[in-house]
Protein backbone atom coordinates (compact mmCIF):
# COMPACT_ATOMS: atom_id res chain seq x y z
CA UNK A 1 0.00 0.00 0.00
CA UNK A 2 2.85 2.33 0.85
CA UNK A 3 4.47 1.65 -2.48
CA UNK A 4 1.29 2.52 -4.35
CA UNK A 5 0.95 5.78 -2.42
CA UNK A 6 4.53 6.73 -3.16
CA UNK A 7 4.11 5.91 -6.83
CA UNK A 8 0.95 8.02 -7.03
CA UNK A 9 2.66 10.99 -5.44
CA UNK A 10 5.66 10.73 -7.76
CA UNK A 11 3.47 10.43 -10.84
CA UNK A 12 1.29 13.34 -9.76
CA UNK A 13 4.30 15.55 -9.16
CA UNK A 14 5.73 14.75 -12.57
CA UNK A 15 2.42 15.44 -14.28
CA UNK A 16 1.84 18.72 -12.48
CA UNK A 17 5.37 19.93 -13.13
CA UNK A 18 5.02 19.10 -16.80
CA UNK A 19 1.83 21.14 -17.05
CA UNK A 20 3.30 24.03 -15.13
CA UNK A 21 6.33 24.79 -17.27
CA UNK A 22 6.42 28.49 -18.09
CA UNK A 23 5.21 29.33 -21.54
CA UNK A 24 6.40 32.86 -21.85
CA UNK A 25 7.51 32.51 -25.49
CA UNK A 26 9.47 35.73 -25.63
CA UNK A 27 11.99 36.59 -28.31
CA UNK A 28 15.60 36.73 -27.12
CA UNK A 29 18.48 38.63 -28.61
CA UNK A 30 20.82 35.80 -29.37
CA UNK A 31 19.92 33.28 -31.98
CA UNK A 32 23.06 31.24 -32.34
CA UNK A 33 21.33 28.07 -31.16
CA UNK A 34 19.05 27.93 -34.18
CA UNK A 35 19.78 25.97 -37.30
CA UNK A 36 18.99 28.10 -40.34
CA UNK A 37 20.37 28.63 -43.80
CA UNK A 38 19.82 31.89 -45.57
CA UNK A 39 19.19 31.49 -49.23
CA UNK A 40 21.20 33.85 -51.37
CA UNK A 41 18.75 36.19 -52.97
CA UNK A 42 20.07 36.59 -56.47
CA UNK A 43 17.64 33.98 -57.69
CA UNK A 44 14.80 34.18 -60.14
CA UNK A 45 12.44 34.20 -57.20
CA UNK A 46 13.18 36.71 -54.49
CA UNK A 47 13.64 34.99 -51.13
CA UNK A 48 14.06 38.12 -49.06
CA UNK A 49 10.83 37.60 -47.19
CA UNK A 50 11.62 34.07 -46.10
CA UNK A 51 15.09 35.11 -44.98
CA UNK A 52 13.55 37.83 -42.86
CA UNK A 53 11.00 35.41 -41.47
CA UNK A 54 13.79 33.01 -40.51
CA UNK A 55 15.65 35.80 -38.76
CA UNK A 56 12.50 36.75 -36.88
CA UNK A 57 11.56 33.24 -35.80
CA UNK A 58 15.06 32.28 -34.78
CA UNK A 59 14.95 34.78 -31.93
CA UNK A 60 12.65 32.53 -29.91
CA UNK A 61 14.43 30.22 -27.54
CA UNK A 62 11.86 27.44 -28.01
CA UNK A 63 12.88 26.99 -31.62
CA UNK A 64 15.79 24.88 -32.77
CA UNK A 65 15.34 24.91 -36.52
CA UNK A 66 13.70 27.23 -39.02
CA UNK A 67 13.06 26.76 -42.72
CA UNK A 68 11.07 29.00 -45.01
CA UNK A 69 10.28 29.44 -48.68
CA UNK A 70 8.22 32.11 -50.38
CA UNK A 71 6.66 32.95 -53.71
CA UNK A 72 5.29 36.35 -54.63
CA UNK A 73 2.14 35.87 -52.61
CA UNK A 74 2.72 32.99 -50.27
CA UNK A 75 5.19 32.25 -47.52
CA UNK A 76 5.52 28.87 -45.93
CA UNK A 77 7.64 28.53 -42.82
CA UNK A 78 8.39 25.45 -40.74
CA UNK A 79 9.87 25.32 -37.29
CA UNK A 80 11.20 22.57 -35.11
CA UNK A 81 10.31 23.15 -31.48
CA UNK A 82 12.51 22.22 -28.53
CA UNK A 83 11.30 18.95 -27.07
CA UNK A 84 10.45 20.33 -23.62
CA UNK A 85 8.29 23.02 -25.24
CA UNK A 86 6.29 20.58 -27.33
CA UNK A 87 3.60 20.39 -24.66
CA UNK A 88 2.57 23.90 -25.68
CA UNK A 89 2.94 23.12 -29.36
CA UNK A 90 -0.40 24.43 -30.61
CA UNK A 91 -0.06 27.59 -28.55
CA UNK A 92 3.43 28.25 -29.90
CA UNK A 93 2.25 27.62 -33.44
CA UNK A 94 -0.58 30.10 -33.05
CA UNK A 95 1.63 32.82 -31.57
CA UNK A 96 4.36 32.45 -34.17
CA UNK A 97 1.82 32.49 -36.98
CA UNK A 98 0.28 35.68 -35.64
CA UNK A 99 3.73 37.22 -35.42
CA UNK A 100 4.43 36.35 -39.05
CA UNK A 101 1.04 37.56 -40.24
CA UNK A 102 1.67 40.88 -38.51
CA UNK A 103 5.15 41.26 -39.97
CA UNK A 104 4.36 40.15 -43.50
CA UNK A 105 0.97 41.59 -44.37
CA UNK A 106 1.53 41.17 -48.11
CA UNK A 107 1.92 37.42 -47.91
CA UNK A 108 -0.38 34.53 -47.27
CA UNK A 109 1.32 32.86 -44.32
CA UNK A 110 1.49 29.18 -43.57
CA UNK A 111 3.34 27.94 -40.51
CA UNK A 112 3.86 24.30 -39.67
CA UNK A 113 5.64 22.29 -37.02
CA UNK A 114 5.17 19.03 -38.84
CA UNK A 115 8.29 16.92 -39.47
CA UNK A 116 7.23 16.13 -43.03
CA UNK A 117 6.83 19.81 -43.86
CA UNK A 118 10.23 20.56 -42.31
CA UNK A 119 11.81 17.98 -44.58
CA UNK A 120 9.99 19.16 -47.69
CA UNK A 121 10.67 22.88 -47.16
CA UNK A 122 14.32 22.10 -46.51
CA UNK A 123 14.44 20.21 -49.80
CA UNK A 124 12.79 23.12 -51.61
CA UNK A 125 15.34 25.52 -50.08
CA UNK A 126 18.20 23.42 -51.36
CA UNK A 127 16.72 23.31 -54.85
CA UNK A 128 16.28 27.08 -54.88
CA UNK A 129 19.88 27.44 -53.83
CA UNK A 130 20.94 25.20 -56.71
CA UNK A 131 18.86 27.30 -59.10
CA UNK A 132 16.91 24.27 -60.24
CA UNK A 133 13.49 25.87 -59.82
CA UNK A 134 11.73 28.19 -62.21
CA UNK A 135 9.26 30.54 -60.57
CA UNK A 136 6.38 28.51 -61.96
CA UNK A 137 7.73 25.28 -60.49
CA UNK A 138 8.28 26.92 -57.13
CA UNK A 139 4.72 28.21 -57.09
CA UNK A 140 3.48 24.71 -57.78
CA UNK A 141 5.72 23.26 -55.09
CA UNK A 142 4.60 25.79 -52.46
CA UNK A 143 0.98 25.17 -53.34
CA UNK A 144 1.54 21.46 -52.88
CA UNK A 145 3.22 22.04 -49.53
CA UNK A 146 0.37 24.20 -48.29
CA UNK A 147 -2.10 21.53 -49.29
CA UNK A 148 0.00 18.93 -47.51
CA UNK A 149 0.11 21.00 -44.33
CA UNK A 150 -3.67 21.30 -44.30
CA UNK A 151 -4.32 17.59 -44.71
CA UNK A 152 -6.21 16.35 -41.69
CA UNK A 153 -6.65 12.60 -41.73
Amino acid sequence: MKKVKLLTIVLLTITLFACNSNNALEPTNKNNHVELTKISTNQAIDQHASNEAKELLSKYKEIIKVNAVNTEKELIATVEVRHQARLQLSEIRKKLKNKLVKNFPDYKIELSTDKKLVLEVEKAEKQIEENSYTSKELKKKVKELIELSREQT
Partner: peptide
Protein backbone atom coordinates in the same frame (compact mmCIF):
# COMPACT_ATOMS: atom_id res chain seq x y z
CA UNK B 1 5.50 6.18 -38.50
CA UNK B 2 8.83 7.92 -39.14
CA UNK B 3 9.43 5.60 -42.08
CA UNK B 4 6.11 6.66 -43.63
CA UNK B 5 6.90 10.33 -43.05
CA UNK B 6 10.33 10.11 -44.65
CA UNK B 7 9.59 7.88 -47.63
CA UNK B 8 5.93 8.57 -48.45
CA UNK B 9 3.68 11.61 -48.69
CA UNK B 10 2.38 11.41 -45.13
CA UNK B 11 2.56 14.18 -42.56
CA UNK B 12 2.80 13.63 -38.81
CA UNK B 13 -0.99 13.98 -38.74
CA UNK B 14 -1.77 11.48 -41.46
CA UNK B 15 0.99 8.93 -40.84
CA UNK B 16 -1.05 7.42 -37.99
CA UNK B 17 -3.42 5.51 -40.27
Amino acid sequence: STFYIYYFDFTEQTAGN
